[in-house]
Design a binder for these strands. Sequence first.
DNA 1: TTGGGGCGAACTGGGCACGCG
DNA 2: ACGCGTGCCCAGTTCGCCCCA
Lengths: 360, 360
Amino acid sequence: MTPGASPTLRDVAQEAGVSPAIASRVLNADPSVRAREDTRERVRIAAQRLGYVPHSLARSLRGARTGAIGLVMHGLDSPINVDVLRGAQARCAESGYVTLLAEAEELTQNDSQLHAFLARGRLDGVILHSGYGHEDLLLEAVSRSVPAVLVNADHGGAVSTVRVDDAAAAALAVQHLLDLGHREITFIAGPAGSETSDRRQSGYCRALETAGLVETADVMHAEWSAAAGRAAAEDLLDRPRLPTAVVVANAVTAAGVLSGFRDAAVTVPGELSVVGVHDSWFLEHLAVALTTVRLPLQALGAAAARVLIDEIDARVAKGASRQGGKAGAGINGARAPHDEFISEPPPQLILRSSTGVPRE
Amino acid sequence: MTPGASPTLRDVAQEAGVSPAIASRVLNADPSVRAREDTRERVRIAAQRLGYVPHSLARSLRGARTGAIGLVMHGLDSPINVDVLRGAQARCAESGYVTLLAEAEELTQNDSQLHAFLARGRLDGVILHSGYGHEDLLLEAVSRSVPAVLVNADHGGAVSTVRVDDAAAAALAVQHLLDLGHREITFIAGPAGSETSDRRQSGYCRALETAGLVETADVMHAEWSAAAGRAAAEDLLDRPRLPTAVVVANAVTAAGVLSGFRDAAVTVPGELSVVGVHDSWFLEHLAVALTTVRLPLQALGAAAARVLIDEIDARVAKGASRQGGKAGAGINGARAPHDEFISEPPPQLILRSSTGVPRE
DNA sequence: TTGGGGCGAACTGGGCACGCG
DNA sequence: ACGCGTGCCCAGTTCGCCCCA
């Protein structure tokens, strides 16, 4: 071993006076290895003394697993999405996987980045939280090369998904307002085309329906951004007749809505009550501390990681049973897609200062 | 080639009727390859038809580069730190590197995660934005295995660093208040021990000094969190005598300060002016839209990536010139550490609603 | 003879099936 | 039968050599 270079398995073996095969199996605690205790000890000592660290690439090249999971995220300017990321990352790390991070926006616009990310052999699987508009392209490219799990989007059952109960969250927000006596509640949805937004909207409608107020349903659309929320608030205030309350499908949008109301000197909750969906640290610091429905975002990310890791394990097991070799598995190691619904903890109302009884 | 399995270089070579050696060099556009144009064409066609994707692990195993950079971040619950992450990630992706994400908190508390992350051969380098308290441990472990760049922390010149002009930012905030006529300005610093906070504090002091007001300097400490900011605000209000303005070393802390003032019914900027450091989307939506000094956070992350990639390139070049082999470089491929100061764009005052003339 | 064109084999670092004493 | 080593495998990269016009 050249001094200064990191030691290889052969170096360790030589140092211990054994063959690389034995060294490998001892260090990996292979239960089927037959070696005298003192031999094992010599190997371990040698590895220790040389500061041996296995070469992860060499190991994964031979084995079936790389130990890396790709996280394709969108909208990292929103703490909401960052929470999902953190949940997924933490869960992966806990299970011994490292995580590769990529932005959906970049990957869709830049083929070379997409290819670098999906390069053969780099990833065991991918978690895709890509927002509406990116899924089709990315999902196809991704799921062709590795197992994938889709977060908060449903893609026709071709791939596993995890979701929170968006409809229940919106319904809970509406119910809170109904309980306060509101009867005219506007829903500020996300952009048309977003499945998450659609599910929240259907929860809103369902709650109104249950209360016998379907005909009062009133939906506006806004992008998932504070600026769009502010614009939506301005549009709303331009109307001749105002509702008494607003449910906003997203906490970041809601921040903008509140600022819009503040700019127009509309008091909250005096003149208008506002409820948001999601929970995050910044909500209590907004123009008015925002009442919201908390959804388990980190748990969502963690669940995605769990489902994906299960699939990877299943595929590896299957591949192994096929005598290794080229493990024809290809992408066909996929089991039936698993759709998971995160119902624990359930959506929870977080009461702050933005809701009250209707005006007059 | 077994149908269903992804094609290897040998498959492509066979399909094109050439040896793997030629196929490799043609596909990598090796300038020193000598092959007829029609041979090259056959190879390219074959690769195309088979949908050949090179195996990244096999390639990096032989080569000097893995094409992966580690991002060790802390405090991803704060959008401020996320901005740094995004800047670094984007810059890495742009240069063809994939990024591995890890949380400093997890890595310090969990040796097995640290080892998985730093496993030999996985990373070409690491960007460390680890917050005070984690550096020592992590930096040592990291820089022993790969080149590293430290973000917004100075570590005795042993490793490269990138920084923004924290002192100038704080000074700018103070100057703005001085211009408005304030003479009693309290600084709410970060936790004791944070270098970033220390630099901002020195900027605060310097500005007061220039104005001949050193003796009015007044510093409080708070963790980098909104809750700590709120507590600091409460402590401040408990005093018999209040300053007329506050500079907060961090935007997230400032959010809490503003909420603390709101809870105590202290009007901003009527009774107290507040200026924060950093800029982010949520600041205009706080209890009072916060005037801040913008620092180029994404540029900071991007600069860290650039510096690191330069170092990696230098090391690879050096290794190559040494006839390859075990490239004794070890960690010694490191050049003299490079300390970069991001002065472009300079700190910029973003005027919102939280500052005004002193009371009375 | 020379040089253009292409191939074989060794090498990266480990894992694992077999086989030898 | 126990204990251990040999050698090929993964998928590329690259150096040196050979062959033929």
